[in-house]
């Protein structure tokens, strides 16, 4: 029953958000009909746009999973952006330096290094929380802000490719790039990695003792302490896992699309990952459609801005409306009440 309720709420939320997006387009576009059409149909109109949309969903799936993992253990990891960015730097750095290595080895090392880097960063916040009750929400965020500057510093300075003409790292060996799918779009084999990781964590979450510990701790920490579940360990572990997924999300674009790291390439993957997790209600498998939805909004707005005259930030407005309403308990009853009142009068 409450699962159906949740679905209705999600549908209403997305509906309201889209209506607000359409209104924004109507107000600002000189050819609103075309803009709206491009927004909704555009991402499906050819393999290029379609592939790009799926490609854009890959990091969102991973950050979405990262967020839902932490949230289900009641650890509020708000530092996904920094963990992602820092993980990507470490992985890219190694990939560039491992130029002579066999491709498969270099890719594996680079991916694991990114995950490790992200995991350690998030783990610090988890450790501070477990050790001294430092609010993990704020500590992860402050560390994230710090890291974005640090990474930018490297991309502009020590790890800059002078020929790039912008803040970007040197290219890695092109053999290290993940295979493309639906060329010429950006879509790459990373999508399979993301889905495999999601399925793996789904089983961890549902069937393993570690998953059990996380879920129980997330629902009621007092009860976990009382039962003898090692709560501190669980919090640190879930922060670590969350951070390492963020790190993985960071490297995947560089291995799949760019072949190097460019300053500011993440278009809010971290923050949107949080929204994705909320839409999915922390369910690992539902993260996939939720990430696709966000990627669709992003791509729709991009296509519409190319083919028509809207500002792509429309996507951000729609996304934030979803954010606003997704946890609103009162939404269904509110709408239900209004409808009933409407019938009465």
């Amino acid at each position: 029953m409450h699962r159906i309720n949740g679905l209705i709420k999600t549908a209403i939320t997305i509906g309201i958000a889209l209506v607000i997006g359409i209104i924004a387009i109507l107000l600002t576009s000189s050819e609103p009909g075309n803009s709206i059409k491009q927004f909704f149909i555009g991402p499906f109109s050819n393999t290029y746009f379609f592939g790009n949309m799926i490609a854009a969903s890959i990091p969102l799936m991973l950050t979405g999973l990262a967020a839902s993992l932490a949230f289900s253990a009641s650890a509020f990891n708000l530092g996904l952006e920094g963990q992602l960015y820092f993980g990507a730097l470490v992985g890219t750095f190694l990939a560039v330096k491992m130029s002579g290595f066999p491709a498969i080895l270099a890719i594996v090392i680079s991916i694991f290094a990114s995950a490790l880097a992200g995991g350690i960063i998030a783990g610090i916040s988890g450790w501070l929380k477990a050790k001294w009750e430092v609010n993990e929400l704020i500590s992860s965020l402050l560390i994230s802000y710090t890291l974005v500057y640090v990474v930018d510093y490297f991309l502009e300075g020590p790890f800059n490719d002078p020929e790039a003409g912008m803040a970007a790292s040197p290219y890695m060996n092109s053999n290290f790039m993940l295979p493309k799918i639906l060329s010429p779009s950006d879509l790459h084999a990373g999508v399979f990695i993301a889905i495999a990781v999601i399925i793996f964590f789904y089983f961890i979450y549902k069937k393993s003792t570690v998953g059990y510990e996380m879920v129980i701790t997330g629902r009621n920490r007092k009860f976990s302490n009382y039962s003898g579940i090692p709560v501190k360990k669980v919090i640190i572990l879930s922060m670590c896992l969350s951070g390492s997924l963020a790190g993985l999300a960071g490297i995947i674009d560089n291995l799949g699309i760019y072949g190097r790291m460019i300053r500011g390439y993440s278009t809010g993957y971290g923050w949107n990952g949080i929204a994705v997790a909320l839409i999915a209600r922390n369910h690992p498998l539902l993260v996939i459609p939720a990430a696709l939805l966000f990627a669709f909004l992003e791509s729709g707005a991009n296509v519409a801005s190319l083919m028509s005259d809207i500002t792509p930030e429309v996507a951000r407005i729609i996304q934030s409306v979803i954010f606003y309403l997704i946890t609103a308990e009162g939404l269904v009853s509110f709408i239900g009440k209004k409808r009933r009142e409407g019938i009465k009068t």
Binding site: R316, Q319, S320, F323, I326
Partner: peptide, 27 residues
Amino acid sequence: NLKANVFVVGLATNLFASGITVFLSSN
């Protein structure tokens, strides 16, 4: 009124603000 999680609504406020300011400045 709608009983949404106040943390999430706060994040939404930040995301909305970053979107709407760029949106307005562009328009």
